[in-house]
Design a protein around this nucleic acid. Structure first.
Lengths: 200, 200, 200, 200
DNA sequence: GATGAATGAGTTTTCATTCAT
DNA sequence: TATGAATGAAAACTCATTCAT
C-alpha cells in the first residue's frame, strides 16, 4: 500500500478515535491497532500524537473549507449562494461527523490545536463579515468591530444548529439549511437598521 | 478554616486549572498544590477527580442560571427583560471566565459531564423557544421543532459572541450586549415572517 | 462505656474485618466506623494497626489455649481427655470463626505476627509430642525429633479438618471430633510400631 | 532474551517476593527491579498484579501436580507408590520453597486466588479419598463424607509436616518422607477398623 | 478523653515514545 | 521500511497515622 493511501486510512481511524474519546483520552495503541499498523509507523508518518492530531484537524478543516468555497464563488452574496454554502456545511457535518466533532471540540479548547481551528473559523467569519458590511441595507448601523462580532455570532449559531441536528438526525438536511438561512438573513437584515428606540 | 469555605476555595482553584488545561490534562497534584491543601483532602471532599469536576460544573452552571433568572422574571419577554438577561450572561462570562470556559468546553465534549452541561443549555434554549413561539409576529412560520432548533442557534450565537468577546476584552459589556440583543431580536422577528420567495 | 468493654468490642469488630480481608487489606477506617469509635481512639488503645492485630491474635490465641487447658488436665492422656480437648478445639472454631480464621491465616504468614501464632502452635504440638513419647506402645520407634514432627503433623491434620468443616457446617461437631480423634489415635498407635518392612 | 524465558525469570523473582512479603505487601516496583525489567513489562506480560500472582500460583501448582502424577500412576495404591508421591511432594517443597510458601499461604486466604489453590488441594485430597475408600481394611467404618474429611486431614498433616521441615532443614528428605508415610498408613489403617469401644 | 480534619508516603496502572532488529 | 519489545514519567487514588481543638 502506498504511503499516501495509508496515511489517509490512518487519519480516518484516528479521527474516529479522537471524536469518541477526545485528544487526551485517545490512546495511540488503539489508533495503531485499529488502523492495522504498528505504532512506530504512526510516529514515522506523523512524528507525534500532536502531529497526528494536527494532521487530522488540517485535513478536516481543509475539506470543510473546500466545500464552502466550491459551493459558491467567494464574492457571491446572493441568497442562492448563501443557501448553497449552508447546505454544503451541513453536508460536511453529515458526512464527516467525526471530523466535525473534532473540529468543534477544539473550538472550546485552549490547547495548541485550538489555534488552527480558530484560524479556520476566523476565515469563515471573515467572509460573513464582508457580507454584513456590504449587505444592501440603507445604512450601516455598527462599525467594523461589530460586524466581526456579529459574524462570529452567526458562525456560532450555525455550529450550535449543526450539533442540535446531530441529535435530530431524522430531519432532512435541507430543512435545517432553510432554518439556518433564515437566521442568517434575519441577522443580516437586522444589522442594516437599528432596533427601534436604540439609543446609539 | 471551615470546610465550606475551603471547598469553595478548592473549586476556585480547580476551575482555573480545568479551564487552562482541560479535564484530562489537569493534574490533581497541581490543583492540590495551588489550593494549598493535600491531595487526600481533594478526595475526602469530592471523592474523585470526576467528582471535583462535576462539583465545579454544577457550581458554575448554578451561578449562571441564578443570574439569568434573577435578571428578569421568567415570563418577561420584553426587550428590557431580554437585554437584562443578556447583560447578566455576559457579566457571568466576564466575572467567571474560568467557569464559562469550562462550561463551554464541555458543550463539545462526549464525556459523562457533557450531559450535565447539555441540561443547563437545554433549559436556556427552552426559555428561548417559548419566546419564539409566543413572539408577537403575525403568524408562526415554523413548527415547534424548528423553534427548538432556532433557539439552539440563538444560544450558540451567544456563546460564540461571548468567546469572541474574551478575545476583545477592551469592549464594554453593554456594547456586546447590545449586539447580541440585536441578533436575538432579528432572529425572533425573522421567525415571525417567512423570507420573501421562500418555497414552503 | 468503660475502656475495657470498649476494647473488647473493638477487638470483636477488628477480628471480623481482619478475617474477611486479611491484615494488609483491612482498613483502619472500616474498623473504626464499624466499631462506632473514632480512628484516634484505635491508636490510643492499641498504638498501631500492628498493635491492634497483635492484640486480637493474643486474645484469640489465649481463648483457644484456655479451652484446651480447661478441657482436660495437662497430664491427662486418656482417650476421654483427648476427645474432650478435640471437642473444645472444634467448639472454638465454631464459636469464634473469625478468630480461628485469623489465627490460621497467620500460620501461613511470614510477617512478625506469625511468630506469636507459631508459639501457640508450638505449645499445642509440645503437648502432643509428650503424648507420643509416653504413649503405651511396646517400644518407641522414632526419636524425639520425629515425635516433634509427628506432633506437628497431627496439629496440621486438625487444622485442615477444622477448615474442611467450615465448608461443611451441616455436620455436628461431635461427628467431626470423632473423626479427628480416630486420626490422632491411629497416628499415636502407628508411632508405637514400625511399619512392616521398614528398613530402620 | 526471548519472551518465554523472561517470563519464567520474572515468575521466579515474583515468587520470591510474594513468598517473603505476601501478596498485598509485595510491591510491583521491587519485583520489576529484582527481575531487571521495567514495571510496564510486568503489565505487558501479566496484565496486572493479580495476573502475575495467578500466573505464579498456576505454575507452582502445575509443577507440584506434575511431580505427584509422575511419581506413581494414578491407580497405584501400593506402599511404594505412596512413598514415591510423598517423596516427590517433599522434593517440591525443598526445591521450590517459594512456590510452596505461596501456595500454602493461599490456603488460608479468602481472596480470589484461594479458589485456585483450593482446587489443587481438592484434587490431591480426592486421590487420597479414593485410597481410603478402597484400602484393604476389613470393613469401611466411615461413609463417604468422612473419607473426604479424613483425606483433608491427611493433606493438612503433610502440609504441616512440610512446614515443620522448612524449620529443620538439616533433616534429609527421605527421613521426613518416612514419617509422613507412617502417618498416612496409620490413618488409612485406622479408618479400616473402628477404635475399640467406639459407639458407632 | 475524644475527634474532625489533615497529610506524607506509597501503590497500581497507563501511555507516549523509542530502540534493536 | 517496518515492528516487537521495552521504558521513563506521570497519573489517580488509598491508607496508616497525627494534630488542633
Amino acid at each position: 500500500m502506498p504511503r499516501e493511501r495509508r496515511e489517509q486510512l490512518i487519519l480516518d481511524v484516528a479521527g474516529h478515535v479522537f471524536a469518541r474519546a477526545g485528544y487526551e483520552a485517545a490512546p495511540m495503541d488503539e489508533i495503531a491497532e485499529r488502523a492495522g499498523v504498528s505504532k512506530p509507523m504512526l510516529y514515522t508518518y506523523f512524528g507525534s500524537k500532536e502531529g497526528l492530531y494536527l494532521a487530522y484537524i488540517e485535513r478536516a478543516g481543509g475539506q470543510l473549507l473546500d466545500r464552502l468555497v466550491r459551493a459558491a464563488p467567494v464574492g457571491d452574496q446572493s441568497v442562492a449562494g448563501m443557501r448553497s454554502r449552508i447546505s454544503e456545511f451541513l453536508a460536511f457535518v453529515e458526512e464527516h461527523a467525526d471530523g466535525w466533532r473534532v473540529l468543534f471540540r477544539e473550538m472550546a479548547s485552549t490547547r495548541p490545536f485550538a489555534e488552527r481551528v480558530a484560524e479556520l473559523r476566523a476565515r469563515i467569519a471573515e467572509a460573513i463579515r464582508r457580507m454584513i458590511e456590504t449587505s444592501p441595507g440603507t445604512r450601516r448601523v455598527y462599525p467594523g468591530t461589530a460586524a466581526d462580532a456579529i459574524a462570529h455570532a452567526i458562525v456560532g449559531a450555525g455550529e450550535s444548529l449543526a450539533n442540535w441536528w446531530l441529535d435530530h438526525p431524522e430531519l432532512p438536511r435541507e430543512t435545517v439549511a432553510d432554518w439556518y438561512l433564515q437566521v442568517v438573513r434575519s441577522v443580516l437584515a437586522g444589522t442594516a437598521s437599528p432596533p427601534p428606540g436604540h439609543p446609539g
